[in-house]
């Protein structure tokens, strides 16, 4: 029993320490990053690497999320003779919750793991020390563009994914449940208010920031050896998933106060 409590305590302490380290990295990055030169070229490059290259996965994921959710709701609603309400039922869950969250734990985790692996390899081969030794700032050079790119990319991908998820839902509504795609679209849009889109985008923005920070943090603290790069990457995916879910809980509390 004591062992178990010890272990739980150790995990909690490690989590709190990591939160502190990530917050410190955020503070340093926000303080040093915007200094001139801002590094638009590198931000643009990272946006392409992290964002644009994630579009195929994001499109695939959101199409299937839309189709699965429409199928689940359609199956439940048709028992009550309410399948025509499929658009109303699907829209809130998809836009406010499922699309940004599932996107963050899949596409976001992919981004974070990529960042951690890249920076971890640079750490192991002393390239990060070399940046410092050449009188440059590794936080400004490496963390800042990745943080900005991830924070900007995820909301953009989220907007696109919301459209694709709507399309996926419409396909299932029309072909499986006989709800015309046009009607599904009308009811889907009708249910949503601007705040729903806004909360979806704000969630994606926060998740994007978390993804960028956690990836950079784990990359920077990679220890010696190629095995350490693998460990950092795995830790990144775990930390990213947990952080996104916890952040989602608190954001939901904020956007949907009781």
């Amino acid at each position: 029993m004591t062992d178990l409590l010890d272990r739980i305590g150790a995990v909690l302490v490690r989590g709190i320490v990591q939160m502190g380290e990530v917050s410190r990295l955020l503070w340093i990055t926000v303080r040093r990053g915007p200094r001139r030169p801002v590094g638009f070229g590198e931000i643009k490059y990272q946006t392409v690497m992290l964002g644009v290259r994630s579009l195929p996965l994001a499109t695939f994921m959101s199409l299937f999320i839309g189709m699965i959710l429409a199928w689940q709701f359609g199956w439940a609603l048709q028992d009550f003779g309410a399948k025509m309400a499929l658009g109303y039922a699907s829209s809130l869950a998809l836009v406010r919750e499922l699309v940004p969250t599932v996107l963050a734990v899949t596409v976001g985790a992919k981004m974070a793991a990529g960042i951690a692996a890249e920076l971890g390899s640079m750490k192991v081969t002393e390239q990060i020390d070399a940046i410092s030794a050449l009188g440059a700032d590794p936080v400004k050079k490496l963390v800042w563009p990745r943080l900005v790119a991830a924070t900007l990319s995820l909301p953009l991908i989220n907007a696109w994914s919301n459209v694709v998820a709507l399309g996926g839902g419409a396909i299932i509504a029309d072909t499986v449940f006989g709800v015309p795609a046009g009607y599904f679209y009308e009811t889907y849009i009708d249910e949503l208010v601007p705040m729903d889109y806004l909360s979806s985008e704000i969630k994606a923005l926060v998740f994007g920031g978390l993804v960028g920070l956690i990836g950079c943090h784990h990359g920077f603290r990679t220890e010696i050896g190629t095995e350490a790069v693998g460990r950092s990457t795995t830790d990144t995916v775990v930390a990213c998933s947990i952080s996104v879910i916890v952040a989602d809980f608190f954001l939901t509390m904020i956007f949907l106060p009781v």
Binding site: E126, L134, G135
Partner: peptide
Amino acid sequence: GEEELRALRRRVAYVFQGGALFD
């Protein structure tokens, strides 16, 4: 501080064991 260190590192070059070239 960080700024002074960066200025120092412009005058003191470090050649790393493995080269540490940006790959």
